[in-house]
Amino acid sequence: MNRVRLATTWLDGCSGCHMSFLDIDERLIQVVERVELVYSPLIDNKIFPEQVDVTLVEGAVSSDEDEKKIRLIRERTGTLVSFGDCAVTANVPAMRNQFKVEEVLRRGYVENASCGAGIPDVDIPHLLKRSRPIHELVRVDFFLPGCPPSAESIFFVLGELLEGRVPELTGKSRFGA
């Protein structure tokens, strides 16, 4: 039997959702026995591959590069999971949306700097006007809320998806959990 091709990635998140994934502890071994991990911050593949069965995406879409990435991921993924509150609602990253990008950058790089004050803009991605949840840009197949979703709910959802079932999440996780 072919193993399920699994990818995980982070956009504008805090990595907490990925850490919660690692919190399944020893059960990680059961998972890696059943999948082929084809792309993830934890492995060295730098290019998002073709024909991925399941992708977990942590974080909101906040920069032009995030946007490019999520469109590519959508194209190449069968089941795309909005993984955690930042992906589902834009959560904490969206707190900057009430300000203009320029103001936010000024606070960090001009007002709070003592040397070379100026907004960085060389060889780095540009911020979008607003941080947005993933489903505002591309179709999402499954939403897994929580900040972060508990290790239990992640293990459950993965198990169901690997079996080709639609997970029934009622009572298992919620926003801000």
């Binding site: 504008d12 906040s62 920069s63 590069e65 990253p93 707190m95 900057r96 009430q98 300000f99 103001e103 936010v104 950058l105 606070r107 960090g108 709070n112 060889d123 780095i124 991605p125 911020l127």
Partner: peptide, 14 residues
């Protein structure tokens, strides 16, 4: 050689 950090989050402002 340069190390670029390519995420910006804005906690100090929001």
């Amino acid at each position: 050689a340069r190390f670029h950090v390519t995420q910006f989050r804005g906690f100090e402002k929001f």
